[in-house]
């Protein structure tokens, strides 16, 4: 497994953001995590990147148990470039003061790759995300949102990571850029990169992921192959989620079905 998360709990003071989440990503597999506001999805991303400590459970990345690593050990682990990340706002994964060339080559330079080789890899990666070499000398602020997000993906790939974690990578993009980035993710998947794709939007994840996990109130309430989860959801929240998706051919649940699912979830929430 490239990633194994087992019984992960994260608390912020009294708030129980994750209540025992378990999931795994096999080599070459793309796993989608669906979660809406307050589900704990960003906490999951942060925990996997070592940005928030786990209160219980275990995270194993490419054979290394990272759960108990201290700050210095984390830094050393990150330097190996095993996991890379892409966030919703590419300005968060790209340094606004560095040119695109520097952002792309920095992770390689840290690993001791020569300047010439790093520069040639940078050009190659830009090409792979369908951007021209003329962007190398620009700053992130001089690019469109869609271009920036593709640069962020290129930066994540340049060290040939075992796993790329994407937290809402297309949510801030307009529809044509969203389609381009999703197409790019599909190409990565087909080329064998392992992806953990976290999003509130079942539709964008469904087109890319092999398997999908549904995160609701800090727990993974359902997971399985995309088609099974969408066509035969078992948990009431997943049913509501699928039945709420606006579709053109109105095959989704009707008002009465949604109303009873909401009532059921409210009553469960009141109990727990």
């Amino acid at each position: 497994m490239v990633l194994r998360v087992d019984g992960l709990e994260v608390r912020y003071g009294k708030l129980h953001a994750l209540r025992g989440a378990s999931l795994s990503v096999a080599p070459g597999e793309t796993v989608g995590v669906i979660g809406e506001t307050g589900s704990g999805k960003s906490t999951l991303a942060r925990a996997v990147l070592g940005l928030v400590p786990a209160s219980a459970g275990q995270i194993v990345v490419d054979g290394t148990d990272v759960t108990g690593l201290n700050t210095r050990q984390w830094r050393a682990f990150r330097r190996r470039g095993v996991v890379q990340y892409v966030f919703q706002d590419p300005l968060r994964s790209l340094d606004p003061d560095l040119t695109i060339a520097s952002s792309l080559t920095e992770p390689l330079r840290i690993q001791g790759v020569s300047f010439a080789e790093a520069a040639s890899r940078a050009r190659e990666l830009l090409k792979r995300v369908s951007l021209g070499p003329e962007l190398l000398d620009r700053l992130p602020g001089e690019l469109s949102g869609g271009q920036r997000q593709r640069v962020a993906v290129a930066r994540a790939l340049i060290v040939e990571p075992r796993l790329v974690l994407l937290d809402e990578p297309v949510s801030a993009l307009d529809s044509s850029n969203r389609v381009r980035v999703l197409e790019l993710l599909k190409q990565l998947r087909d080329a064998g990169t392992s992806l953990l794709f976290i999003s509130h939007d079942l539709g964008s994840v469904a087109g890319v992921a092999d398997r999908v996990a549904v995160l609701y109130r800090g727990e993974i309430v359902e997971q399985g192959p995309v088609r099974d989860v969408i066509s035969r959801p078992t948990h009431p929240y997943t049913k509501l989620l699928v039945g709420s998706a606006p579709t053109l051919r109105s095959a989704a649940a009707d008002r009465a079905a949604r109303a009873s699912l909401r009532a059921l979830l409210t009553s469960e929430g009141a109990v727990s």
Binding site: V179, I230, S231, G243, L248
Partner: peptide
């Protein structure tokens, strides 16, 4: 990119 492609096949089942 919507769910339609799953639902149009499995809509009745869903």
């Amino acid at each position: 990119y919507g769910l339609d492609r799953f639902l149009s096949l499995d809509g009745a089942a869903l």
